[in-house]
């Protein structure tokens, strides 16, 4: 019995580690000329590293990247990302010049599920479904869009960017 339990937990940990190793490996290396920080790895699932188990310090309760359109990799800066949780608590954060945004768990920890909407200029886009538990937008919004992925988060349904963000 004790041996079985030990084996069960050992295998459980081993499987979890394998999955995590795979997720970390799939992220690849840092892009050239972009140092690790608030501007790095746009579009990637931030929670793989910023999920509390390292290697990054700190934990994000929600994070992602906003792009212009479904087909564009151009980021949108200054988008207001509004979050409301199942208890009605709200929080807002702005995307930076890389389109990235993140909420540290020390600032706001939603009571799941949560709902999100994006605001830019006079345009508002509300996510149709709740976020049940996924802290990385790219966990569900990975590219390419498919039968099991929504594709990246984008602000505008039309194809004309109002302005392109640049990080200088």
């Amino acid at each position: 019995m004790r041996v079985s339990l030990l084996l069960f937990f050992t295998l459980g940990i081993a499987c979890d580690d394998t999955r995590r190793d795979r997720e970390l490996s799939e992220l690849g290396g840092e892009a050239a000329a972009v140092a690790p920080g608030e501007l790095h790895r746009p579009g990637q699932p931030c929670g793989v590293c910023h999920g509390g188990a390292g290697p990054a310090h700190g934990r994000f309760s929600l994070s992602g990247t906003v792009f212009w359109t479904a087909d564009s990799q151009a980021p949108v800066a200054h988008t207001v990302v509004r979050i409301i949780d199942s208890l009605g608590a709200q929080y807002a954060v702005r995307s930076n010049c890389a389109g990235n945004f993140f909420v540290r768990d020390s600032e706001f920890e939603p009571h799941w599920p949560a709902w999100v909407k994006l605001e830019f200029a006079n345009k508002t886009l509300e996510m149709r479904s709740p976020i049940s538990r996924e802290r990385s937008c790219a966990g569900c919004h990975a590219d390419p869009a498919s039968a099991s992925s929504v594709g990246h988060v984008y602000m505008s349904a039309d194809a004309t960017p109002l302005l392109e963000a640049e990080c200088n």
Partner: peptide, 9 residues
Amino acid sequence: RENGLDVSG
């Protein structure tokens, strides 16, 4: 999506 072709969302 059931048929593997339609896109989620």
